[in-house]
Simulated scan of single mutants.
Amino acid sequence: MNTVLKAKIIEVCDKKIAAKGDQVGISFYAFFKNKNDNPELLMEAATWWIQTNKLDHFEKALKIKNLVLGITTK
């Protein structure tokens, strides 16, 4: 995953967690505007989310942030 996408995911997760707590859910669409202005980055996020990690549509923001940072939790 490229550094721009990693930074965006962490930023969005941090904002969501700060606003709604560490149980807040998120989907990969949260990292993009309502426009498809960067289809390559959107596909990279979708591939990472769906194919690489086999995540559900909504996951905990804290889980996503930890995956991006390489932190494993049980």
Results as ranks from 00 to 15, higher is better:
40 E>M: 03
36 N>G: 14
72 T>A: 13
41 L>C: 10
25 G>F: 15
53 N>H: 12
73 T>W: 03
23 Q>I: 10
32 F>Y: 06
40 E>D: 09
65 K>P: 13
31 F>M: 01
23 Q>S: 12
18 A>L: 11
7 A>R: 14
29 Y>E: 13
42 L>D: 15
31 F>K: 02
69 L>H: 06
36 N>Q: 07
35 K>M: 09
46 A>G: 12
68 V>P: 01
35 K>R: 05
20 K>V: 11
28 F>E: 02
66 N>Y: 12
67 L>Y: 05
38 N>L: 07
45 A>F: 03
9 I>C: 06
36 N>M: 06
51 Q>G: 14
36 N>T: 06
14 D>N: 01
58 F>H: 03
39 P>A: 00
34 N>D: 14
68 V>M: 00
58 F>C: 08
49 W>N: 05
55 L>G: 02
65 K>V: 13
40 E>H: 02
55 L>S: 08
53 N>W: 14
70 G>A: 03
39 P>H: 06
24 V>S: 03
68 V>F: 00
15 K>H: 11
52 T>M: 04
55 L>D: 01
70 G>T: 01
45 A>N: 05
54 K>E: 09
26 I>T: 04
27 S>D: 06
73 T>M: 00
47 T>R: 03
74 K>I: 11
14 D>K: 11
2 N>Y: 04
34 N>L: 12
61 A>P: 07
41 L>Y: 10
1 M>F: 02
37 D>Q: 05
51 Q>R: 01
46 A>H: 14
50 I>V: 00
56 D>Y: 12
65 K>L: 09
18 A>G: 03
38 N>H: 06
1 M>E: 02
7 A>D: 08
22 D>K: 04
66 N>I: 04
35 K>W: 14
44 E>G: 08
64 I>T: 11
50 I>F: 14
17 I>Q: 04
70 G>D: 02
2 N>L: 06
45 A>D: 09
